[in-house]
């Protein structure tokens, strides 16, 4: 391939890359979080860790899972630029040295947002599961 041909391909490639970046930026800005529901909701909280299983139903007016879990004193957390990062649940600490962390599941599916962006929906089951490995 001649040098000139390679330069033309590079110019076209750079234009395609720029366009792709623009499309991806649009995807980031349009994939926003859902709007919270006002009023009372009945939810189930499950906390699963090692040999301990916790499951409890709650009535709440809270809109976001992070606020609810903190108010019910169900979690310990560090505040980061991305919101609350759960360090313990139901008194059980995640050992970061052993690569332990708390995974959040909503109705059996791993949450796609952090607890501070997870909107509480009536009838939902929220599970905190001590997970090993990242």
């Amino acid at each position: 391939m001649t040098k000139k041909k390679q330069l033309i391909i590079a110019a076209v490639g750079a234009a395609v890359l720029t366009a792709l970046c623009a499309v991806l930026i649009i995807i980031v800005f349009t994939s926003g979080k859902s709007e919270p529901e006002k009023g009372g909701k009945e939810i189930t909280i499950e906390i699963v860790a090692k040999d301990s299983n916790f499951s409890e139903k709650y009535d709440t007016d809270e809109e976001y899972l992070g606020d609810f879990l903190e108010n019910e004193k169900l979690i310990g957390f560090d505040t980061t630029e991305y919101g609350r990062f759960i360090t313990s649940a139901n008194g059980i600490e995640a050992d970061a040295n052993a690569q332990e962390w708390w995974a959040v599941y909503v109705n059996g599916e791993m949450a796609v947002t952090g607890v501070d962006q997870t909107v509480i929906e009536d009838g939902s089951v929220y599970r905190l599961e001590l997970t090993v490995g990242w």
């Binding site: 390679q6 391909i9 110019a11």
Partner: peptide
């Protein structure tokens, strides 16, 4: 490929 402009696109 010996054009570093093209490698820049590939690496990008």
């Amino acid at each position: 490929i010996d054009s570093w402009a093209l490698w820049a696109v590939i690496n990008g």
